[in-house]
């Protein structure tokens, strides 16, 4: 399994404003895990209720695919600069 990204850097620079952020994603992981553990009974009940209509399985697949997308973001780099603004996003 792929390792989830550890850090995210966001930098937005306008003509008269500047915003930069180093987001330590690895610090958020324990919080997300605790949040998921608390919500897991509710998720399970929702999936069981939705299972006969086919949406339960779909919801589980979407959750898995979304997690995979998140884990695949490692290495993404967006650097766009125009005459007025600079946007830089990097996922490490």
């Amino acid at each position: 399994m792929k390792r989830p990204p550890m850090l995210m850097r966001v930098k937005i620079q306008g003509e008269d404003s500047r915003f930069g952020l180093w987001l330590p994603l690895f610090l958020l992981w324990p919080l997300v895990l605790v949040f998921l553990l608390i919500l897991s009974p509710l998720i399970l009940v929702a999936v069981l209720i939705l299972w006969p209509s086919g949406w339960g399985k779909w919801a589980l697949l979407v959750l898995r695919a979304a997690f995979e997308v998140f884990c695949s973001m490692r290495g993404l780099q967006v650097d766009i600069c125009d005459r007025h603004q600079v946007v830089y996003i990097s996922v490490v």
């Binding site: 792929k2 995979e68 997308v69 290495g75 967006v78 650097d79 600069c81 005459r83 007025h84």
Partner: peptide, 17 residues
Amino acid sequence: KVDRVNVRVPMSLIRAG
């Protein structure tokens, strides 16, 4: 001041997408 773009998308992200 000029326009400049530099985007790097991991192939794994394309796969997952």
